[in-house]
Each structure stands twice: as C-alpha cells, then as structure tokens.
C-alpha cells in the first residue's frame, strides 16, 4: 500500500519508493530540527523567557513548539487557492492531498491560516503574537506557574498596546488574536492524534 506524507515540512507528499524508512525519516528531520532550533532561538529573545528556570523553558518549548510552527508555517496553507506548498517548493491542491488520504486536519489548517492572514498583522505584531503563543502553551510539567503567567500577562499587555496603537479602528483585532490561542491548542491536539497514528516502516 502506498504511503504519503501529509506534513508540508516534508519536501513532497510522495515518498520515493527507492528510499528506505530511515532515509525518509532522516529527510524529514533535516527540515524539522532546524525549524525547532529557530523556535528556541526565537524564545531566547523573548524578554523574560531566559529568566524562567531551565526546566520551565524546556517544558514550555516542548508544549508550544508545534503551535509556534503552525503560526510560522501558516502561509504554506493558501486558503484562497486551496493549495499547500511543501518545503520542496511545489504546491499541491486540496483534491490531490485528499486523494492521498489527507484528513479533516487539513481543513482546520486552512481555516486557521485564512483567519490569521485576514488580520493583516505586521512583522512586529506577528512576532509578539508568536511570543504570546509560546508562553500560553500547556502548563503541565511547569514548576513555577506564577512566573510563566506573569510573563504571559506582560506579553499579552504589550500585544494589546501594540495592536491598539496600530489598529485604532479595529478594536476586535486583539480579541480575534487571543481567540487564536484556543484554536492553536485544538490544532495541536489534532496534530498529536495524527502523529500518534503515523507509522513509518
């Protein structure tokens, strides 16, 4: 039975039948590892993040990396064209990906991407929002919840000030952004289910 890769962090959804499972896995890790490192480098630059204990830094990153990657790679999901661009640079239509077995998760990603794009955030706003996403990740395993929540409050306050300054006539923008946090949590849960169901032979 042919297998396909649904994650656009792969070069392409088709698996070269000449490649072994190890080669396919290695190729994915070749994209995944630097992407995670970039998230860590980003986190290090969030004011106050390095003041958290090392344990809490690791646990926040473990819980929040996927959500940050969804924000960063949202533009790969073009809701208007209904295409997904894989890291190899080629676009694949929804119909093509469906025929390969793509699940409902794909629709949820398009929906998230479209709503985020429609907010028309600047680079600075997106960066601050991404910082909020990271520190709003699941708290399980966190030792000092108070410190993480204080950092989250500070960043949300800074985001509200920035959005209010830049979009004075669009008061709903900040609210819409905060509502993306539970959306991201749902996407994270859906993705975890996909990941657990995934087997490479």
């Amino acid at each position: 039975r042919r297998m396909y890769l649904g994650c656009p962090m792969n070069t392409a959804p088709n698996i070269d039948s000449q490649k072994s499972g190890h080669e396919v896995w290695d190729e994915f890790m070749h994209s995944f590892t630097p992407a995670v490192r970039e998230v860590v480098e980003f986190a290090k630059k969030i004011p106050g993040f390095r003041d958290l204990s090392q344990h809490d830094q690791v646990n926040l990153l473990k819980a929040g990396t996927f959500e940050v990657l969804v924000v960063r790679f949202a533009s790969l999901f073009d809701a208007k064209e209904r295409t997904v661009t894989f890291l190899g640079g080629k676009k694949y239509s929804v119909d093509t990906l469906r025929s390969m077995g793509a699940s409902e998760f794909l629709n949820s990603m398009f929906d998230f991407s479209e709503k985020l794009t429609n907010l028309g955030l600047s680079e600075e706003e997106m960066s601050l929002f991404t910082a909020v996403v990271l520190v709003s990740a699941d708290r399980s395993g966190i030792e000092n919840v108070n410190s993480v929540e204080a950092l989250q409050d500070t960043l949300i306050c800074a985001l509200r000030n920035l959005i209010t300054k830049n979009h004075p006539n669009e008061l709903a923008t900040f609210t819409k952004l905060l509502l993306k946090l539970p959306d991201l949590r749902s996407l994270n849960n859906m993705h975890s289910e996909q990941l657990l169901a995934f087997k490479i032979h």
């Binding site: 499972g21 896995w25 890790m29 995944f32 590892t33 995670v36 490192r37 860590v40 480098e41 290090k44 090392q54 830094q57 690791v58 990153l61 473990k62 990396t65 975890s192 990941l195 657990l196 995934f198 087997k199 490479i200 032979h201």
Partner: peptide, 27 residues
C-alpha cells in the same frame, strides 16, 4: 521506528539549542 512523537527527539533538540551546543549546530 516505534512512536514517532518521542522519536522526533523534540526535547533533545530543544535542550541542545537552549545550551547553544555548537557541535550540534554544525551538523
């Protein structure tokens, strides 16, 4: 390969990146 969620080695990548492991970065 077992469970890909743990085989992704997320925690290991995060720890090394947090420590600024130069050797790992050069791979």
């Amino acid at each position: 390969f077992g469970d890909p969620a743990s085989n992704l080695g997320l925690e290991d990548i995060i720890r090394k990146a947090l420590m600024g492991n130069l050797e790992e970065r050069q791979e």
